[in-house]
Design a protein around this nucleic acid. Structure first.
Lengths: 222, 222, 222, 222
DNA sequence: CATGAATGAGACTTCATTCAT
DNA sequence: TATGAATGAAGTCTCATTCAT
């Protein structure tokens, strides 16, 4: 008896501490399962169990599966966007280098955390969550767009880039990044022959293409 | 009685015909609903009802919702790819024009039929259908990739394009196309302020970027 | 095998027939259970099982437990009230006899069917079903009140009754009837010593009291 | 710290006192909620919260929701009956006046405290609490019946009342009172058009009816 | 072939009750 | 004593699938 209670008191954090870390545990578990299976196919009991708590405990922290999902989106994507904006503001170097660095930095951050897969889920389920659409447009799409607009304007101002339209070019710069995230967490996660796309080389190729263009430069042998 | 059956025999296809067109009606109905709601949120009764048959009849043609989903994917995407390959083979004109034409043609074909939305669903659900992954890699991704590889090699051979790596550049050319399809059928289908991306202008901007590059050409004022 | 299928074909009504009788089976089962246990304590699966069908079948006919409950109220109480009105309209005899006959007739009808217990449930749960309240006031309380008002006006017109206020006296005539119904299906249904109220004698006593009054008539020895 | 504890020690009863008043606070909170929502729909956490304590504390005083319910019934109804008996014993005046006064007094006491609503809950739930039935018959029904029997015997003895059967007439006197209580706390508490019964006038009408009868007295013009 | 009534496993969510702090 | 985080049994409702007609 005495031994047991001693053991238990050392192996388990105190109550208050548990309460503080529960949201994070639940959000982590939910992120993983939503990304792997999608929203509808993820059972809330499974989330709880992966977080090491019971079904009921999940509902102590989030009132429904929908709210849990929104919390996951908020935490992961909003945070990611904020860090991207800081990265661009703090960067020193040419704008071409900044583009490459942003691609690389973002990719590394996304690949570890599974956040990329979250975009897949949003994409797939947003029509069944009408209110999520506006939230996502405001919190994720628009800020990400602004980051790349800033990058392009920086390049034009320094004379590095052609005078392209920042808004539509920003889309063209973001799209491959996001697409690769999507791919990585869906088809890329399956064991198939020949369907793989290697993300970093592809991003590199894309950046090269974007920077130099596909057309041969007249009067310049390459 | 006699009158009625006469009437019916003129307004309705004969039995044998019915049997032949049922699968198509079901696949069309399923495509629309899967694209709109996703796999899990589409009820099989709704598919049957939209196809004008009863629940039981659906199961006469497809043994489960999963098989129906796979049949929808097979029919629509395989067909699309085949048409793209023919389009490229038959095209006469410069490779830059071919790229623009392929973008435009494909987009028009995809926007009407809802096939673009299907890619969204595949992306989201492929991890829950492991056997779909290989099918998709073989039947959709690889052929589409080959089409763009052919396009690039055509441009390099004619001296129009730089000597880029065809395989990775092909990815870079496909990605925006596919991404816009995805976007159009998810966030683009929602009523949001500011989240919209206009597809044709964006494709145009992207094609321009891809062809001419972002960097200012030394010694050439633009 | 042959025997079995013969047996089954004779022991079970055809499909279409079953569909027609299901609502009645379900309403009967629901009435019994609601009366016995109340609304909240009645499980919908229990209703289905008592009606001889599965959980899902109940929801084929009624979209929720609330709607089932409302259907039970409608069928039973609305019907009862209608029959009471006809009974009063068709009665020939003195108004005092009509009052006694109405008490007796109604009681017999209510005691068999369990409808009396339904009033108990409405009384207990109406505050959790706000929309039921208006329905009940319109469909049950007001019509029942009108029946007794008609009875009193009939007695006053014939010179049998004193000139009392019909509306409030009608309440006084209905109340004991309804109360006994309530009692019969709650405390009266339990095995207790001494708590019983014998309904018919009590109604008789009440009718006598109502008709002749409690006060000794001055100058009249009884 | 010192200030705070000083402040608290003056504004808060000492520990021992707290222990003594907790049950009363809990019973009061439970009475209100049971009457408003019924037994099943009242959450125990809500009771605790309304009493200003936590969920766990409720279980320190009552081992289950059922026991809490029984305690509420015991305290409130038993007290009410006792006060009624004292009122009758102490009354000076005619028996007709006593009846009116008892109606009025009881009604005022009941309307404030919500005890009338408690009878509604007992009525609805007694079949799910078999042991409550006998308790209720012994502690509430029988004593209340005895009060009215005493009242009738008092009236007969003084020559005021006809020589009716005290037992069944007592029921007839109680019933409208109790019924109005029930009504007031169920349908009467809802916002409906036309379903209302004004309690005091109805009691008055009933008392008039009971005392003087409905039939016109031969040879006496009224 | 076609129907649609029926099934029942399974999902989400609630809440009475427990117990470590 | 008092708290409130945690539990998990239980309830409502859905829907893919079956099968008698």
């Amino acid at each position: 008896m005495t031994n047991q209670s001693l053991t238990m008191s050392t192996s388990r954090p105190p109550r208050q501490r548990l309460k503080d870390i529960r949201p994070q545990q639940l959000l982590d578990a939910a992120l993983g399962l939503f990304v792997e299976k999608g929203f509808a196919a993820t059972r809330s009991e499974e989330v709880a169990s992966l977080a090491g708590v019971s079904k009921g405990t999940l509902y102590l922290y989030y009132p429904s599966k929908e709210e849990l999902f929104k919390a996951v989106v908020r935490q992961n994507l909003t945070k990611l966007i904020g860090e991207g904006a800081e990265f661009v503001a703090a960067f020193e170097g040419s704008s071409a280098e900044l583009l490459l660095a942003l691609y690389k930095e973002w990719w590394l951050r996304v690949a570890d955390t599974g956040v990329g897969g979250l975009h897949k889920v949003v994409l797939a389920e947003v029509r069944n969550f009408p209110e999520l659409a506006q939230f996502y447009a405001d919190e994720v799409i628009a800020p990400a767009h602004r980051i790349f607009i800033a990058l392009i304007e920086r390049g034009i101002a320094s004379g590095e880039f052609r005078k392209v339209d920042p808004a539509s070019t920003a889309h063209a710069l973001i799209i491959p990044m996001v697409f690769l995230m999507l791919h990585q967490y869906s088809i890329g996660a399956c064991q198939v022959h020949g369907g793989k796309v290697d993300p970093l080389p592809t991003l590199q190729a894309h950046a090269d293409l974007i920077l130099h263009g596909l057309l041969r430069r007249p009067g310049k042998a390459r």
